[in-house]
Design a protein around this nucleic acid. Structure first.
Lengths: 292, 292
DNA sequence: GTTCCGCATGAATCGATAG
DNA sequence: ACTATCGATTCATGCGGAA
């Protein structure tokens, strides 16, 4: 099946109106964070943030499939020595709008921005807020099982003889554990804390988040040929990752430079995937919404 | 100077009234979390949580020194498939009461409770909310510097001679870096994510948090002979750690069994510290507030 | 072919300075 | 007095060039 990646230029609040009800399986996005400065791109004032966001999330609520999920990456800044509260207020407002606040994941950034202040340490985490339309949503937990890290491997290597014996006797005695737990001993279910680096090696464009972030949630909440939406596409990380993972995707951005850049990249990217056989076919990016 | 550890039995809302204004340097506590079930200890319903907490925090605001800090360890549970919002509402209410919400630390629990649910991963983090009375509060950052990892050590060992020379010339020329930053090069400042295990190796009673948690904040926000307060003492972890670190402390709990247990332990603990010389003096726990 | 090192850089924050 | 901009701070990561 052909994977479609539809990129739109415009205000999400408006563009989303062209998308069918219940058609999207995962919304993953990182909106512009509130900012005191007015001149920057998307600089919404903290006091007006919920007011600005709600008309968009109203559309998101409409286009999301009832078994789908909405993941919002955001973190409030410290202003004048205090954390802004606009994210807290946004969560409360989204619940009033009809969203279920299912979970809050923590993205623990391994390499955070440097800095030293008299009253504050470096901020090395961000929120990943999970919202749903209904309590029964799709979640493919096995897809994101993590290989046990070096730490675990090291521990296993250094197991004392008594430890090893004890483990063996435990297994041998048939007590307790389900055997499948032991068979898959190299994999473990993750927790709600993600420990990823802020990838800083991309020269061309700076992504707001590393590819592994949307990748994780796309694995967890969608299967192949599902539809992923990012209403604040930016440099298009979500869409590229979706395409790589055989998911259809929709990306929207209000800035022409982002729109043009992503559109160009997506076409290049198609070449890479299908090259050289279908090079002459140059799959035209379709302007209508992808429907399965 | 003698370290005092004062333990009180009663409702914090009332007991705190006996404590002088501006007399406490650090409040570290983990209050009973809200709970749907009504029978459990301290089971406050989520809807009434802020209402229940505010009269207590009003007293906390009064007794806290303006350069002191209030650290609140809390995490909302998932109820009926959704995260409760009472913690968010509490933060907003505390700000209205006059507190500054300075920071939100994340305690990333290294070994969280195992479990598997169809729609949720293990919850392996908790909030540590930092509140202050004023923007200028005491913070002893150097006390909590962490050793740099093995990776960094390896790199430093392999520093080239030119690197070393360059550093010297930089410092010598008076440009840039503070020398102390280079002297302590094996230590790095931490971030606002704490990665501690949930070690509960105390045999008799299970503490809500490991000793390393209050220890970290006591190091960061107090110096010796300061006064630490825990208005929901529980098994008294905060107080034991404070005593061990030469800080005076006050502990309050509404349940006699906790009060009695901690009182007994504190006396035993005193023996250990002063044994055997002052055994016969058996320092009587004073019922008035410790004042420096 | 390895291993080693230099360097750029990332949703930061505060306090000082400028308009 | 108030707001907007700028400089200084300084950690983890991985790539690419060097040894």
């Amino acid at each position: 099946m052909e994977i479609k990646t539809d990129i739109y230029l415009g205000d999400s609040k408006e563009v989303l109106k062209d998308i069918l009800d219940n058609s999207v399986d995962l919304i993953f996005t990182s909106p512009p964070y509130a900012d005191q400065r007015k001149k920057t791109y998307g600089g919404i004032h903290p006091d007006q943030y919920a007011e600005w966001f709600l008309p968009i999330s109203e559309q998101l609520l409409r286009v999301l499939n009832p078994s789908g999920t909405f993941v919002l990456n955001i973190k409030e800044k410290a202003v004048n020595g205090e954390r802004s509260t606009y994210v807290l207020e946004l969560i409360l407002a989204l619940r009033k709008q009809g969203w279920l606040w299912t979970e809050e994941f923590v993205w623990h950034k391994k390499n955070s921005y440097p800095g030293k202040w008299p009253n504050r340490f470096r901020d090395s985490w961000e929120r990943l807020l999970q919202f749903n339309k209904s309590k029964s949503f799709n979640m493919y937990q096995e897809e994101v099982m993590v290989p046990m890290g070096d730490w675990a491997k090291k521990r296993l290597l250094n197991l004392s003889d008594t430890d090893k014996k004890r483990d063996v006797s435990k297994v041998g005695s048939g007590f307790g554990k389900n055997i499948s737990n032991w068979e898959n001993r190299d994999k473990a279910y993750p927790t709600n804390v993600l420990h990823l680096a802020t990838e800083c090696n991309n020269k061309n464009h700076s992504a707001a988040f590393p590819e592994s972030l949307p990748e994780w949630f796309i694995k967890l909440f969608t299967k192949e040929n599902d539809i992923v939406l990012d209403p604040f596409m930016g440099s298009g990380t979500t869409n590229f990752v979706a395409k790589k993972m055989n998911r259809n995707s929709i990306g929207i951005d209000i800035l022409p430079e982002y729109y043009n850049m992503v559109k160009e990249k997506i076409e290049e990217f198609s070449y890479v995937l299908f090259e050289p056989k279908v090079k002459y076919e140059k799959t035209k990016i379709r302007r209508r919404v992808a429907i399965r």
